[in-house]
């Protein structure tokens, strides 16, 4: 026989599951407690202190000779620091925006007063290969994987890559030292 289990409350016959405020409060406290307990378990997967310490790196730009490039590792990725010649800078500035797949003036990709230094993440925006320095039809970079050509501002000119090479967040701390990230 299907007994009704437990509504054996004698007396006033009050249903114990009636939504008294105190029960709602207890439930709310439980939910709050659960949320507070869950947060550290999720947050622990965020980058740890030692990873964040390597989130920025400083670099001495006097190490890059004019016309040359130095590649460093930043956040696990290659970063190009290129010391451009005056000719290369002029070339970069003389491109009309209509010719660019991803239009962006050169001035937006360098720091004022330090236009000779071009700092880019060395990862092709197509599928992530590292472009080679100085080759290609536009004097910038050439990606051997699928034939993307970048100019002396790191902008995509020819090939399958959709975007210009990424300019990371950076700032010059002094005339010779730049902090990337």
């Amino acid at each position: 026989m299907a007994d009704q289990v437990g509504t054996a409350a004698h007396g006033e016959g009050q249903d114990p599951t009636r939504r008294d405020f105190i029960h709602i409060a207890a439930g709310a406290a439980a939910a709050g407690g659960a949320a507070m307990a869950v947060w550290p378990l999720i947050n622990q997967m965020n980058p740890a202190g030692d990873t964040l310490a390597l989130a920025s790196t400083e670099f001495d730009v006097t190490k890059v000779a004019e016309g040359q490039q130095v590649t460093i590792k930043w956040r696990g990725k290659p970063v190009f620091i290129r010391h451009r010649t005056a000719a290369q800078i002029a070339e970069a500035r003389n491109v009309s925006m209509g010719d660019l797949k991803d239009p962006q003036p050169d001035s937006e990709r360098v720091k004022q007063g330090k236009e000779q230094f071009l700092i880019l993440v060395g990862s092709c925006t197509h599928l992530g290969c590292v472009p080679t320095f100085g080759t290609g039809d536009y004097g910038g970079w050439f990606c051997p994987c699928h034939g993307s050509h970048y100019d002396t501002s790191g902008r995509i000119r020819k090939g399958p890559a959709p975007l210009n090479l990424e300019v990371p967040e950076y700032a010059f701390l002094t005339d010779t030292s730049v902090k990337i990230g």
């Binding site: 550290p40 378990l41 622990q44 997967m45 740890a48 202190g49 030692d50």
Partner: peptide, 27 residues
């Protein structure tokens, strides 16, 4: 997710959890 089960790194990985992993000391 953070512990390294190798004799040369186990002890240090636990201390890394205590110091560098967010909330690692608590966990």
């Amino acid at each position: 997710m953070h512990y390294v089960p190798h004799v040369d790194h186990a002890f240090a990985s636990v201390e890394r959890i205590m110091r560098d992993v967010n909330g690692g000391w608590l966990i």
